[in-house]
Amino acid sequence: MAGLDRVRRRMIDTPTPQDGVVPMPARGPVWGPPCPQHALVLDGNDVLDCWLAETRAERNQGLLGTDSLEGALWIRRCSNVHTFRMRYAIDVVLVRRDGRVHAVETLAPGRFSRPRLYGLDTVELPAGLARTLGIVPGRVLTCRRLPDADACGL
């Protein structure tokens, strides 16, 4: 329970424009590097820049504190997400262990995704982008590290 309390406290302490603090617009997650380190790969083809959330802290923070997302956020070991305290809608893609897309749904701010038994990882995209890219159940979706990822300034 102590871990959950820290997450709640962090969510409550996130500055908002109503607090008189206007957060800088972020291209991706506020906890991540300034440029994406990975590529989202659909059926063997790179389609989008991608950030990867692997640690508990990264998964808990997710896209909180961002105004938009330019690319994708791949969240390891996550079968459902929420959009509370988010300012924009997102597409949520659940990926099975074999890399196949299990489900795709669009979430407006203030909503929970449906938990799915077969989802291993979750990919968050700007709303409508999954449809534009043709991400539908059955297609293969993976995340690969970019060869020049370290040139980003880390």
Rank of each mutant, 00 (worst) to 15 (best):
L107S: 05
L69C: 05
G119I: 03
S113R: 02
E54W: 02
G3Y: 07
C143L: 14
A130S: 15
A57P: 04
V81L: 05
G134L: 12
P109R: 11
H102E: 14
D13I: 00
Q61F: 00
G32N: 01
G110S: 05
L63P: 00
L120Q: 12
W51K: 03
D19V: 06
M1C: 08
L73W: 09
N80S: 15
P147H: 10
T14N: 00
G119P: 08
P25W: 00
Q37H: 11
V123F: 08
V47M: 04
T106I: 10
G3H: 09
D13L: 02
P36K: 06
L129Y: 08
L48M: 15
R87C: 02
V41M: 08
G134I: 13
L129Q: 15
T142A: 10
R6K: 12
L117D: 05
M24C: 00
N80T: 13
V123I: 12
G99W: 04
R56L: 06
V136P: 00
A39W: 02
V30C: 01
R144N: 11
E124V: 01
R10C: 00
G44P: 13
T55G: 14
G99Q: 04
R77C: 03
H102D: 13
S68W: 10
S113V: 05
R100S: 15
D46N: 11
A130G: 13
L146R: 15
P29K: 01
P17W: 07
L63F: 08
I75L: 13
A127D: 14
P25G: 01
L4N: 03
Y88I: 09
C50N: 05
I90A: 06
L73E: 09
W51V: 02
L42P: 04
V95P: 08
L4E: 08
R145D: 03
W31K: 02
T106K: 12
N60S: 15
A149Q: 03
D49I: 00
S68F: 06
V136H: 06
V41Q: 04
N60E: 15
